[in-house]
Each structure stands twice: as structure tokens, then as C-alpha cells.
């Protein structure tokens, strides 16, 4: 759905465009402009600071206001004080909050979150869940959340269940 891979059968339309017919660079363009990602294992760059990690999508897009926008995003996830810290110096919960800031920094129309609380303890998990949903409202975006956590799933408006590769 997010255009990270292409289907072996059928087609995928993302924001009105058939991404199955696009090449990798064209799909990358769509992701850069309209899509945000949050991953289970955070995937922050260990040798970059929290701020640099958040800036990554904007720098790829060549946005001249990358620093300011990234600071705002960090502020929105409550981590502006940790901007200069390297990813390795952050706790699990903090890492995921930086990842959320990175996902929303380009104001995506759609935000994909793959098991966003899968690697977190209960307390951090609750905090990240609350943050995700409040951000979702704040920036008025579509949140697509993939999870095994039924409590988390029930917080969503629409629920779809996948089992053995089929939609139930």
C-alpha cells in the first residue's frame, strides 16, 4: 500500500495514482511528498542527531526550511530538548517519538505506522499511542496502522483484519 514494494498480482492506487505502473523513482517522489512512515524498530540513523533524523525527508526533498520545520515537529512530539542528542542516546519511547516527528515533518496526506508500539514497554507504548492519535488529529492526516495489539486497533475508526494473506 505504501509503495515500498510492488504487488505480484493486481494493482495499488495511492492518493489517486496507480503506483504499480510507476518506476521506483516515481514512487519515491510520491512518498517524499505525501507519505509518512513509522516502523516497529524505529530505524533512526544512529550517527545522526534527533534533529538530523527528523530533517531527513525534508533534506531529500530539498526543503530550504528543513531546520525550522523539524524543530516544530520535534516540539509537537515533546522532544525539542533532545534535538541535539544522537539516536543512540535516546530511550526506546523517545526513539519512536523522534520517528513520529520524522514521519509527520513533511505534512503527509497519509501516515503508515507498522507495529509502532511493538518494541516498547507498556508505559512508553501508551504514550506513543496517545501521541500518534493526537498528532493524527492535529495535522489532519490519514493514519494507517498495522498492529497485533487489539486494544490499539480498537482505537481506530476502520478496522481490517488480515489472516494468511487474505482480508477477512
Amino acid at each position: 500500500m505504501a509503495g515500498l514494494d510492488i504487488p505480484t498480482k493486481g494493482s495499488v492506487k495511492l492518493l489517486g495514482s496507480n503506483i504499480t505502473l510507476m518506476n521506483e523513482d516515481q514512487r519515491a517522489q510520491i512518498r517524499a511528498k505525501d507519505v509518512g512512515f513509522v516502523f516497529q524498530s524505529f530505524h533512526l540513523m544512529p550517527r545522526l542527531s534527533a534533529l538530523d533524523n527528523v530533517m531527513l525527508p525534508l533534506e531529500i526533498a530539498g526543503d530550504p526550511d528543513a531546520i525550522e520545520k523539524s524543530q516544530i515537529a520535534l516540539d509537537q512530539v515533546g522532544l525539542s530538548s533532545r534535538a541535539k542528542n544522537f539516536a543512540t542516546q535516546l530511550s526506546g519511547g523517545e526513539k519512536q517519538r523522534v520517528a513520529i516527528a520524522r514521519a509527520i515533518v513533511n505534512k503527509p496526506k497519509i501516515l503508515f505506522a507498522d507495529e509502532p508500539t511493538g518494541n516498547l514497554d507498556q508505559k512508553s507504548s501508551n504514550a506513543v499511542t496517545d501521541l500518534l492519535f493526537s498528532i493524527n488529529e492535529l495535522i489532519n492526516t490519514t493514519l494507517v496502522l498495522v498492529t497485533h495489539d487489539l486494544l490499539l486497533a480498537e482505537k481506530c475508526k476502520d478496522l481490517y483484519e488480515l489472516s494468511d494473506g487474505s482480508l477477512l
Partner: peptide, 15 residues
Amino acid sequence: LHASLMKVFGASKLF
């Protein structure tokens, strides 16, 4: 990892 992540966030091959 860095390169793949860049791809996820929209970086082209040339980038």
C-alpha cells in the same frame, strides 16, 4: 540501512 531509509522517504537513485 541509511540508503534504504532514504528511499523510503522519497530519495531517488541519483540522490
